[in-house]
Amino acid sequence: MAAAAAGVSLALWPSAASVSSAASTTSANTGHAATHRGGTASVAFAGSLLAVDNEVVGPGFQRATGHSYTGRGGGSIGLAHDIAAGEITPGVFESVGAAPIRALEPRFTRWYVRFAASPLVLAYNPHTPYAAVFRNAAKGNGSLAAVFKAMARPGFLLGRTDPATDPQGQAFIMMVELAQRALHLPGAIVGQILGAGATTGTGGNLSQIFAETALDSHLEAGQLDAASAFLSQAVQLHLPYVRLPAAIDFGNPADARQYASASLVVPSTTGQKTTVHGAPLVIDVTTLHQPSATKADVAASNAFLAYQLSPTGRRDDAKEGFVLLPNTLFGSPGAVPASVRRELAHAR
């Protein structure tokens, strides 16, 4: 999730650019629909939604509604900072977890809809000596405990993202904690897999920590034995992966209580000590009140949200590796735009 800025934007913008060029072609094809409505849905989303939003949902939305679409990916927390500071002014915000949206209340929004979850998986390199253990576990005819024991071996090359900035990086550490308990593994195994102090604020074995965009590259280049990944990433990049039980994969809101039993101290560059508890990795979406937005843009933003929550939009996300949850509204219903409310009622 922690992704775009400076150097990384080099990798991100080409896809965004191709979408906007597609947008102009689309408006030409669908007659003057876009010109008549004139609205642009400007969407800020967590980095893990980059592919699905820019390549599937965005273009589908344009075709279906005639509105234009621009997308911008980044870490949810970082995006929230940028929105609050007025550095960026998106009309729609899709975040991993509700906390970044809550940080924008009540000035920008007072509600959000939860519609999907993004479970953690273990992506692995099919060409290393450990691959067999993972492959068996993936097929269901090997024990998951063997996978964790393999990861605890000295010299095992594990990759994960930064718990200081990235919810996935935090969740991965807590997932190992939960796995240790659920699979009845020795208590020392958490330290053996993640390095000493991973849950107490040191970050653990720092050589395992990569920038989120770079992590996939290291695995694809065959330079890691296994890496933390969202199911959606593994699906989109065609990485072989091991699904984890719902009780430890942070993808099932029903297991929230179970997730909350794990915790870690977030390593910080500024010296503050913050403890976080496990919570489902869910996708929450809302529209943002931007004083500078035109009526047409507001209409486009609302339409995007309705499209995302519609059966078509949900199917796109499911295909890309997200686990669908029933559309659920949080916050004050009165503030929800009519078109979104209609979609919620429709689904019910």
């Binding site: 930064d162 200081a164 970050g203 920590i209 560059t269």
Partner: peptide, 16 residues
């Protein structure tokens, strides 16, 4: 990514 040098520190602090 680790150990943080100054540019990385800027990036991580920005994120955080």
């Amino acid at each position: 990514y680790h150990p943080y040098g100054l540019p990385m520190q800027i990036w991580v602090t920005l994120q955080q």
